[in-house]
Design a protein around this nucleic acid. Structure first.
Length: 816
RNA sequence: GCGGGCGUGGUGGAACUGGUAGACACGUCGGCCUUAGGAGCCGGUGGCGCAAGCCGUGGGGGUUCGAGUCCCUCCGCCCGCACCA
């Protein structure tokens, strides 16, 4: 007997060399245009240190999908790149003085090496890093396109500032009042910054969620983030200052219940309003106090309501009543207009405030035992023409009335804010703008791109970008007038870099345009996008926005970049997130060194359905390694021991069993990989079952042809999960490259046996199982069932009420 | 508070439209082989019971010949959002 030993250390590098030498996974745009193509994309990694176990998981998932698509007849692009700008490398530079480019590129080399060692089928001809001038030149180009379209603009606004990272943040990067990256409490600062006008796209970003195949919870998160609400804008006039104030309300039906009016402490008019009243000092003190509080303190809905009167009034447009004005921090400047009409009878927050300050609470909707009542019902205490109307009906009438009178109109409000893209940091894409004393902000002309990021001595942020110190670079001339000018020293949010990288993969070497239309038309949209949940809002929303904006500007023809999305769960250790602090990190390199990449990949896919979090278990790895070892050895032994015969025409005994099992496995694995299914754990279990069947058959009477067929099938089905072992076993058995061979197809005739196991129940309880012919009639099955001793024992002496037959499945005899 | 998801052996998890609950694997127990093994192979393993059998998918109720799956209700856990007017 041949003594083959499964040795991944020998097998894996050998196949990796083949794939590298032959550029097996390269696919040209020309090839893709010729046939059915598929773009399988895993979110590009941020290269820092070494890849971790999460990378191994996400690329194992992506690779399984890519391989399955290829072998079912599609031309697959699976590219790779690096989200190379970013704070960790810069912080490392501050600590060590090492240029962020050096540490980043070292990390990239480590990622590259490990991706090759894992055998991921990447088209390396399309690789890039977002920090390369050849890439960010086009990031700047996109900025200019958006600028010229009015979609990139500069404004002075209250912005989120992270005191630890020393930079402003986008709204999306503030979680619970803290910096999404470092966890520090965010402060509010008034600064002039660059924004992308993503709010112009709020409606489309919301609506088009209906057109894409994404997990429902991700869509829900995006919907919540966009936060559409329908209502009305209503004008309240302040006589004292002769100014109109608009408020947004979703409940114009409660207008007659408004008893006061509240403005946010950040509202620019607050202090001016109080001027000359006895409340002026108190208002200033309140505003200053609010500014000193963190977003987290401010955001607490449970704390008691506070506020100060402004000493002014506004007029309620529906009834002419004068409402006292207040400033209170429960009104947010960033939502609506920064001012509200307060209806304490029908709003819990307004009610709490009214209680605190002894203000009138008026019921204008019937219903509920006590106030505040937030439900529906008929109007009361309103105007004669509205009283008695159901409030939903009254709502529309009141808005119509406001509209006619010019005091308001129906409108839609969104929670979404414009995307603040400026960052006061060094290691990012320079914003291609110069400031001229005469012409103001002037965009750098396209033919002068890229604006290259200069080297600096000191990376430490000092409240302004470290780039400001690069004086030779900062001082330039105005492209418009030729006079002295200074460059923008902020860099772009790194989410800008990653909002279009999937387009660049389509045409990565293009040096006259970011992409050709033909190239993106060939590949876009991404057929299957795969990545972590943490990007449910940030990256996935920004990328969608970019696609829509670039399409509107005529550079693209896709509204949605990612037709289907899959989000994978985390790998934990002892139930906790792996982290260096906890000392529970499993480095993929260690597992790959010990068991080989195939074992590592299979284990991670076998452990649980990939969308779930799963706990790492060292023993589980051993089990998967045993399986691969057994299957590979069966194949390697059979290749030399068993003559290469065809499968016998008449199947019986062991031959019948293993050939049918092979077809069963084909069916099982295919249905767990196809049509957006990601149940790799079940697919791998099916290959294990086939392997177990074959281990047993080795002791039996199976013919060489049948065994070879079943083993070849097992090796072939294994390919998406363990490409090295699969390629090796398959080649030994057939002399062919498994990836050149189409995915096996199950023979429907062999999926259905001549006989099946009839389940026999009495009163729904299992009483026996007997083999029955597949083509047996209902009557045959019934009489077969009735004849069983165990059935008779439960039927005797009782009356048969009903008999249920499910052909091919079961018989249920109902007795009383 | 609002929205979404989940609850199955000692463990991770299977179970297509309601039709054999627990596939596959880990662990564990027993055996073989070994000087030895944390290697390999073979077999058992939801609970109770000598057995026939009974009980079992978070608790309770319902629909059905038949419920892990459908409906109602309660409990527990996870995730997202939250002073959003």
């Amino acid at each position: 007997m041949a003594e083959h030993r499964y040795d991944p250390k020998e097998i894996e590098p050998r196949w990796q060399a083949v794939w590298a030498d032959e550029r097996t996974w390269h696919v040209s745009n020309e090839e893709a245009r010729g046939g059915d193509s598929s773009y399988v994309l895993v979110m590009l990694p941020y290269p820092s240190g070494e890849p971790h176990i999460g990378h191994l998981k996400v690329y194992s998932v992506g690779d399984a999908v890519a391989h399955y698509h290829r072998r079912t007849g599609r031309r697959v692009m699976q590219p790779m790149g690096y989200d190379a700008f970013g704070l960790p490398a810069e912080n490392h530079a501050i600590k060590t003085g090492q240029h962020p480019r050096a540490s980043t590129e070292a990390a990239i080399r480590s990622f590259q090496r490990q991706f090759r060692e894992w055998g991921i089928s990447i088209d390396w001809d399309r690789e890039f890093g977002t920090h390369e001038p050849g890439y960010y030149r086009w990031t700047q180009w996109i900025f200019l396109k958006l600028f010229h379209a009015g979609l990139a603009y500069r404004k002075d606004a209250a912005v989120n500032w992270c005191p630890n990272d020393m930079t402003v943040l986008a709204n999306e990067q503030v979680v619970d009042g803290r910096c999404e990256r470092c966890g520090w409490e965010v402060e509010v600062r008034q600064l002039e910054q660059w924004f992308f006008r993503i709010t112009d796209y709020a409606e489309r970003l919301l609506h088009d969620l209906g057109t894409i195949d994404w997990p429902e919870y991700v869509k829900t998160m995006q919907r919540n983030w966009i936060g559409r609400s329908e209502g009305a804008e209503v004008t309240f006039h302040c006589d004292e200052l002769g100014v109109d104030y608009e408020v947004f309300t979703t409940r114009p039906d409660t207008l007659f219940g408004a008893t006061f009016f509240v403005m946010s402490p950040e509202h620019p008019d607050v202090v001016r309003l109080a001027e000359g009243t006895e409340h002026h000092d108190a208002v200033r003190a309140y505003v200053n106090h609010a500014a000193s509080e963190s977003a987290e303190e401010r955001g607490d809905a449970d704390r008691p309501k506070t506020g100060v009167p402004l000493g002014r009034t506004v007029v309620n447009p529906v009834n002419g009543e004068r409402l006292p004005m207040y400033v209170a921090d429960y009104v947010l400047m960033e939502y609506g207009t920064g001012a509200i009409m307060a209806v304490p009878g029908h709003d819990e927050r307004d009610f709490a405030f009214a209680q605190e300050y002894g203000l009138e609470v008026r019921r204008v909707i019937e219903g509920g035992d006590e106030l505040p009542y937030t439900g529906d019902g008929p109007l009361t205490n309103s105007a004669a023409e509205f009283d008695g109307l159901h409030n939903r009906e009254a709502l529309e009438r009141i808005v119509e009335w406001l509209d006619r009178e010019g005091r308001g109109h129906a409108t839609i409000n969104y929670r979404l804010r414009d995307w603040l893209l400026s960052r006061q940091r060094y290691w990012g894409c320079p914003i291609p703008v110069v400031y001229c004393e005469k012409d103001g902000p002037v965009p750098v002309p396209e033919d002068q791109l890229p604006v290259v990021l200069p080297d600096v001595e000191d990376y430490a942020p000092k409240g302004r970008s470290p780039l400001a110190a690069a004086e030779d670079w900062v001082n330039t001339t105005c492209p418009r007038c030729g006079g002295a000018a200074k460059r923008e020293t902020d860099t772009m949010d790194t989410f800008v870099d990653s909002s279009w990288y999937f387009l660049r993969y389509c045409d990565p070497a293009n040096d006259t345009a970011p992409w050709s239309r033909e190239a993106v038309d060939t590949w876009m949209p991404v057929d299957q996008y795969i990545g972590g949940v943490e990007h449910a809002i940030l990256h996935l929303l920004y990328a969608r926005f970019f696609c829509k904006a670039l399409s509107d500007l005529g550079h693209l023809d896709v509204q949605e970049p990612f037709a289907a999305l899959f989000t994978q769960g985390m790998i934990t250790r002892d139930g906790a997130k792996m982290s260096k602090n906890k000392g529970n990190v499993v480095p993929p390199q260690e597992i790959v060194d010990r068991y080989g990449a195939d074992t590592a990949r299979c284990y991670i896919l076998f452990i649980a359905p990939p969308e779930k979090d799963a706990d790492w278990n060292d023993n589980g790895v051993e089990g998967v390694h045993r399986f691969l070892s057994r299957l590979w050895k069966l194949c390697a032994d059979a290749a030399v021991e068993l003559p290469d015969e065809p499968v016998p025409l008449d199947l019986d005994g062991d031959d019948d069993r293993i050939v049918r099992k092979a077809h069963w496995a084909i069916d099982k694995v295919s249905s767990n990989l196809g049509m957006g299914h990601f149940t790799f754990n079940v697919a791998i279990a099916a290959i294990m079952e086939l392997t177990n069947e074959l281990t047993e058959a080795r002791r039996g009477e199976a013919s060489p042809g049948a065994v070879r067929f079943a083993l070849t099938t097992a090796a072939s089905l294994l390919f998406p999960f363990a490409p090295h072992a699969s390629s090796d076993a398959f080649e030994r058995l057939t002399g062919r490259r498994v990836w050149d061979v189409p995915w096996p197809e199950a023979d429907a005739d062999l999926l259905e046996g001549d006989t099946f196991e009839l389940v026999v129940q009495v009163n729904g309880k299992l009483r026996d199982r007997v083999p029955a012919p597949s083509d047996a009639s209902r009557e045959d099955l019934l009489s077969l069932a009735r004849g069983l001793p165990n059935v008779q024992a439960h039927v005797d002496g009782k009356q048969v009420v009903k008999e249920i037959v499910v052909p091919g499945k079961l018989v249920n005899v109902v007795v009383r």
